Structure formats: structure tokens, C-alpha cells
Amino acid sequence: MDVQLPLISKAWQHVKALIGIDTHALVNEDDIEGKLSLKAIAQCYPSHSAQSEIDKKLLYTPLIPGIDNFIGRDSQQQQLTDAIERWQNNKGELTAVIGPFGCGVSSFLNQFHQQYAQEHTVTYLSFYHGVLTTKEAIANLCYCFNITEAPTSITAAIALINQLPRHIIIIDDLHKLMLRMMGNYQALVTFATMLMETRQHHCWILGCETFVWHRLSSQYSITNFVKSIITLDYFSQQDLADLLKQKTSQISLQLTDTNDEETNNSLFDNMAKQLHQASDGHPKLACVLLLQALVNDGNSPITLNPISQPDLSSLKQCIDEDLFSLAELYVHGGLRVFQHAEIFATSIEHSSLKLEYLARQGLVKAHYSKQDFAQHYYLITPTLTRIIAMHLLNHNKLYL
């Protein structure tokens, strides 16, 4: 048998580079003093279940409903209330709530869902996947009204929806509509047309990621149709301190041996400042960094080690091909292997190896399909969205 060893060797080097076996792509980042690797951060959250009661309280327990879910969101809360009041006065227009991944757009919309559910019929919809046909777009919007047999035409669907009792419909994860695959444009047009033609009768509130919103604006002029745009961002230092105060009130954290309130407050403010600098106001990342700094030996109270900074070594080693993949994963909110292959016009096998390499580095989180590897789903690790987005922006892979 004629075995071409040079070709095999070259192919093996390419496979190793893709899945992260190459020695130059592996750095023992956890040994860097004062730094916490992105992989270590990614392994902290989310997991299938909280590892301890402290994990549960810091990372998984929601804030007190109705009071503190709106930390730092007073003006945005009023803007959304005003938009709903205009609709109640028969002056309804489309409203969008935009913000970067991890800043709390979904939590913000969920809180309004709970707040208005007692007064109005409120439906909350989060897209499971992007729509690619007119039929899928009609079916998704009809689903908001529990219409099981959707009309086949846009005109009939609009007429039917406008005959139904008035609803508030909150549609989150609008980025799922940005799937750059064949048929996507017509699905977007159908979706937008139905919203525009029913906006007077029903109140439509849309949640969307900031960079995706800019892409929708530049490619489809979506801002021409949305009247109210409410912008969220990551937390300011004071807002993050307020959130951390609530989180740490649920655990026995002690920053000093004294009972002096002024000293305790000063130490807490210093801790919050360090966490804000390390996380750029990303609440989940700040909580993970806090969790990693806690000294919990089973005794009470819990004390604190120095706050670690995220180590960006693995991200800095990414080549352009990796960064382009991360950018598409970011704006789509996640991709399946076959979707990545279609977007980059490459093979399923190449896409599978590329995405698995990023997962091995801790940059993306994988959800594996037992039936078909082409259906494996990858998304940016939730705690790293801010870090990765800024890196992509600085390397001209995301655009404002």
C-alpha cells in the first residue's frame, strides 16, 4: 500500500491545531499568579447544578422580585412603562430593549412580564432557533396567540391576529432572527410586516443584543420601524455594588474582624471596585470572580482572598479564523455545526473541529447531540460575553 507520510503528517498537524492539541496553543494559565483562566471561569457557570449553597446564592438565586431586579434601570423602566401607556391610549408603536449579552435584558423583560401579567394578557416568547421561511415566521407569531393552525398567507395572519383580544407580547432573543442562511431575508420581511400591521392593536416589545441591533439597522434599516429604543448596558460601579450587597447578604462573608460599620463599608466598596474593574460591570462574571476569591473552609464566617483578574492568554492566541467564528457565534447567540459550515462555506467536519477547539479553550460552551454531530450546538460562554465582545471589537471582527 502506498502511504504518503508527508501528507498524513501535514493533515495531522492541521487537525491538532483545530482541536487544540498543538503545544503552542496550550498554556497552563491557572498557574499564573493573580490571574484566573477563561477556561476556569467558564467551568464555574453555568453548570447542571450548583456545587454548593454559596454557588447557588451567588450565581443562581434571582434577586428579590419587583424591587432589585431593576438595579440601575430606573430610567429604562420608566421608558418601557411609557411605551405601554401609549399603547393603552391607542398610540401603539414597536418598542425594542437592546443591550449586550449578559447585561440583563432577559431579566428586565421577564420582570415586566410578571409585573403586567395581572393587568393584561402578556405573552413571553424566546426563539428556540432562527426562522428561515415565511411559513415559519407566520407560525412563530401565531404561536404567541395560541393559534395552532396558522394561516398560509401574511394577509390572513394579520387579519386573524388583529381580531384577537389585545395582548402585550414580549419577544426576547431577537438575535436568533439574524441567521445568515438561505431564506432568512424573506422570513425577516414577513416578521417585520406582521408586527407593523398589528402594532396598534397589540403591544410588541422586542429584546435584542446591541451588536445584532446595529447589524439589523445597517442591513435592514430596522430603526425606521421601531419607535422606542430602550438601551441597557453593563452595571456601573455603584449598581454592581448594590447587586453584590444583596448577593453577599445571603452568605456569611466577613471582610474584617472589627464590627466598625465604616470600616466594613469601606472594605466592601473596595471589593466592589476591584470586581467592577475586573468584570467591566458584567454581573455574572463579577459573581464568579467573587466566588473564586471566597475562602470557605466549612467554618463561619467566610473570608476573602485577593480578587483575581481574568487571564486572556487563550483568547490572544486565537487566529483570525477563530475570531471570525467567535464573532458569528456571538451575533447569532450560538450556532449548530451545520450552520457554522454553511456560513463559512466549509465542510461539516472542519466546522466541527473548529468549534470543538474553541470549546476546549473554554471560550464557547457545547451542547452535544447524541444523534448527529452536525447538530452539536455551541454558544459563547455566558460569563465571557463582555471579554470576548471587546476583544472582537478591538480586532475589527464586530462593528458598532
Rank of each mutant, 00 (worst) to 15 (best):
E197V: 07
P283D: 05
T23M: 14
T231N: 14
E33V: 15
Q43S: 13
Q186P: 08
T23H: 14
T155Y: 10
L174W: 05
S249Q: 12
N396V: 05
V105W: 04
N296M: 08
E209D: 11
P62D: 02
N140H: 14
E356D: 15
Q76C: 06
G333A: 05
A42I: 07
I229P: 08
Q43E: 12
S47K: 15
L206R: 01
S218K: 11
I19D: 02
A286L: 05
H332F: 10
Q339N: 11
I98F: 07
I170W: 04
T303M: 09
Y234R: 03
M1P: 12
H201C: 07
S308Q: 14
A137S: 13
W87G: 00
R166Q: 09
D372K: 14
Y399R: 11
A327M: 04
K354Y: 08
A389P: 02
S218H: 09
Q186N: 14
L195N: 02
F112G: 06
S153E: 10
T148L: 13
M181A: 13
G66S: 04
A345T: 15
I302F: 03
D322S: 07
R199K: 14
Q111M: 11
L94V: 03
S126T: 12
S313T: 09
D31R: 10
Q254W: 06
E261T: 07
T210Q: 09
Q4N: 15
A359D: 04
W87Q: 05
I71H: 00
V337Q: 03
N146L: 12
I387A: 00
P283A: 01
T231G: 09
E136Y: 08
A96H: 02
L80M: 09
D172I: 06
M178R: 15
T385W: 01
H14G: 10
T258I: 03
L392F: 03
D297A: 10
V288L: 07
N305W: 10
H175S: 13
S236L: 03
A359H: 10
A192L: 15
N140E: 15
K247M: 07
T258E: 06
I147A: 11
K227H: 10
A293D: 08
R73E: 02
G66R: 06
I67G: 03
P46S: 01
N396D: 10
V331L: 08
K176R: 15
A374S: 12
S279V: 04
L59T: 05
F373L: 14
H120C: 07
Q246W: 08
L400C: 09
Y357G: 15
L304K: 05
A341H: 03
K273D: 00
L304S: 04
S236K: 08
T231H: 13
P301S: 02
A50Q: 07
S352Q: 12
G99Y: 02
R86W: 04
D2G: 13
L63A: 04
L358W: 01
Y330V: 03
D257Q: 12
S126E: 07
A359S: 14
D31M: 12
N89K: 13
T223I: 12
T193V: 14
Q254Y: 05
Y124W: 08
L289V: 02
Q13C: 09
V364H: 04
P301W: 04
A157F: 02
A157Q: 00
T133P: 01
Q361R: 13
V189D: 11
Q88E: 12
I302R: 01
F70D: 00
N296T: 02
A278F: 05
Y45P: 02
Q77D: 07
N394E: 08
S249H: 09
A272M: 00
L384M: 03
L304Q: 01
K135P: 06
T190S: 06
E261K: 13
